[in-house]
Simulated scan of single mutants.
Amino acid sequence: MNSPLPCGCRQAAAPDRYISFKDIDCDGNARRIMDCIAQHIALPERNNAFWEYFMKKREGGSGPRPDDLFLIHSNINQVRELFETWDDQQALEWLLQLEEECC
Protein backbone atom coordinates (compact mmCIF):
# COMPACT_ATOMS: atom_id res chain seq x y z
CA MET A 1 0.00 0.00 0.00
CA ASN A 2 1.40 3.39 -0.97
CA SER A 3 1.51 6.10 1.65
CA PRO A 4 0.57 9.62 0.50
CA LEU A 5 3.40 12.06 -0.12
CA PRO A 6 3.52 15.28 1.93
CA CYS A 7 2.27 18.61 0.61
CA GLY A 8 0.18 17.05 -2.14
CA CYS A 9 3.34 16.12 -4.08
CA ARG A 10 3.03 13.40 -6.67
CA GLN A 11 5.67 10.83 -7.30
CA ALA A 12 7.07 11.04 -10.83
CA ALA A 13 6.30 8.09 -13.03
CA ALA A 14 9.23 5.77 -13.62
CA PRO A 15 10.65 5.77 -17.15
CA ASP A 16 9.16 3.09 -19.36
CA ARG A 17 12.49 1.56 -20.34
CA TYR A 18 12.72 -1.89 -21.95
CA ILE A 19 9.07 -1.67 -22.93
CA SER A 20 8.56 1.41 -25.07
CA PHE A 21 11.22 3.96 -23.96
CA LYS A 22 8.28 6.39 -23.82
CA ASP A 23 9.31 9.80 -22.48
CA ILE A 24 13.03 8.91 -22.53
CA ASP A 25 15.13 11.04 -24.88
CA CYS A 26 17.92 8.51 -25.46
CA ASP A 27 19.22 10.31 -28.55
CA GLY A 28 19.25 13.69 -26.81
CA ASN A 29 20.91 12.23 -23.72
CA ALA A 30 23.56 10.55 -25.88
CA ARG A 31 24.24 13.87 -27.64
CA ARG A 32 24.67 15.50 -24.23
CA ILE A 33 27.32 12.89 -23.32
CA MET A 34 29.03 13.43 -26.69
CA ASP A 35 29.13 17.16 -25.99
CA CYS A 36 30.82 16.43 -22.65
CA ILE A 37 33.37 14.19 -24.34
CA ALA A 38 34.07 16.84 -26.98
CA GLN A 39 34.60 19.51 -24.32
CA HIS A 40 37.08 17.31 -22.49
CA ILE A 41 39.09 16.21 -25.48
CA ALA A 42 39.24 19.75 -26.87
CA LEU A 43 41.92 20.25 -24.22
CA PRO A 44 45.19 18.79 -25.55
CA GLU A 45 46.17 17.19 -22.22
CA ARG A 46 42.91 15.21 -22.24
CA ASN A 47 43.08 14.01 -25.83
CA ASN A 48 44.94 10.96 -27.12
CA ALA A 49 44.95 8.52 -30.02
CA PHE A 50 41.90 6.66 -28.69
CA TRP A 51 39.74 9.80 -28.55
CA GLU A 52 40.89 10.85 -32.02
CA TYR A 53 39.84 7.42 -33.31
CA PHE A 54 36.56 7.63 -31.36
CA MET A 55 35.63 10.99 -32.90
CA LYS A 56 36.72 9.84 -36.36
CA LYS A 57 34.50 6.78 -35.95
CA ARG A 58 31.63 9.02 -34.85
CA GLU A 59 31.87 10.86 -38.17
CA GLY A 60 31.93 7.58 -40.12
CA GLY A 61 35.64 7.82 -40.91
CA SER A 62 36.26 4.11 -40.42
CA GLY A 63 33.07 2.60 -41.80
CA PRO A 64 29.37 3.29 -41.40
CA ARG A 65 28.55 6.20 -39.10
CA PRO A 66 27.21 4.78 -35.81
CA ASP A 67 24.62 6.66 -33.81
CA ASP A 68 25.86 8.34 -30.64
CA LEU A 69 24.07 5.95 -28.29
CA PHE A 70 25.65 2.89 -29.91
CA LEU A 71 29.11 4.46 -29.91
CA ILE A 72 28.88 5.44 -26.24
CA HIS A 73 27.49 2.05 -25.27
CA SER A 74 30.30 0.28 -27.15
CA ASN A 75 32.92 2.37 -25.33
CA ILE A 76 31.18 3.02 -22.03
CA ASN A 77 34.16 2.05 -19.87
CA GLN A 78 36.48 4.46 -21.70
CA VAL A 79 33.89 7.25 -21.47
CA ARG A 80 33.43 6.60 -17.75
CA GLU A 81 37.20 6.61 -17.24
CA LEU A 82 37.52 9.97 -19.02
CA PHE A 83 34.92 11.56 -16.76
CA GLU A 84 36.35 9.95 -13.62
CA THR A 85 39.91 10.99 -14.47
CA TRP A 86 38.87 14.63 -14.77
CA ASP A 87 36.36 14.45 -11.89
CA ASP A 88 33.38 15.48 -14.01
CA GLN A 89 30.58 14.48 -11.63
CA GLN A 90 27.79 15.94 -13.76
CA ALA A 91 28.90 13.99 -16.82
CA LEU A 92 29.16 10.82 -14.71
CA GLU A 93 25.59 11.30 -13.48
CA TRP A 94 24.35 11.79 -17.04
CA LEU A 95 26.32 8.74 -18.19
CA LEU A 96 24.79 6.59 -15.45
CA GLN A 97 21.33 7.83 -16.40
CA LEU A 98 21.99 7.03 -20.06
CA GLU A 99 23.32 3.59 -19.18
CA GLU A 100 20.38 2.73 -16.94
CA GLU A 101 17.66 4.10 -19.18
CA CYS A 102 18.92 3.48 -22.70
CA CYS A 103 21.77 0.94 -22.93
Results as ranks from 00 to 15, higher is better:
residue 16 D to E: 05
residue 59 E to Y: 06
residue 25 D to I: 04
residue 54 F to C: 05
residue 101 E to L: 15
residue 65 R to M: 12
residue 31 R to G: 08
residue 12 A to P: 09
residue 52 E to P: 02
residue 64 P to C: 00
residue 103 C to D: 10
residue 11 Q to D: 05
residue 17 R to D: 09
residue 74 S to W: 12
residue 73 H to Y: 14
residue 53 Y to P: 00
residue 63 G to W: 01
residue 37 I to T: 02
residue 69 L to N: 15
residue 94 W to T: 13
residue 58 R to T: 01
residue 101 E to A: 05
residue 50 F to E: 03
residue 75 N to C: 11
residue 21 F to P: 04
residue 62 S to Y: 14
residue 38 A to E: 04
residue 11 Q to V: 13
residue 82 L to V: 11
residue 59 E to D: 10
residue 22 K to S: 06
residue 90 Q to L: 11
residue 56 K to N: 15
residue 11 Q to H: 09
residue 87 D to C: 10
residue 86 W to C: 01
residue 97 Q to N: 09
residue 99 E to F: 08
residue 55 M to D: 06
residue 12 A to V: 08
residue 85 T to F: 02
residue 36 C to V: 07
residue 100 E to F: 10
residue 101 E to T: 03
residue 12 A to H: 09
residue 12 A to Q: 07
residue 76 I to A: 10
residue 87 D to N: 13
residue 29 N to Q: 12
residue 89 Q to K: 11
residue 98 L to W: 07
residue 25 D to C: 06
residue 51 W to F: 14
residue 79 V to E: 04
residue 47 N to F: 04
residue 79 V to Q: 05
residue 78 Q to E: 15
residue 78 Q to C: 07
residue 5 L to V: 07
residue 29 N to Y: 09
residue 52 E to S: 13
residue 1 M to K: 12
residue 97 Q to R: 12
residue 59 E to Q: 13
residue 77 N to G: 04
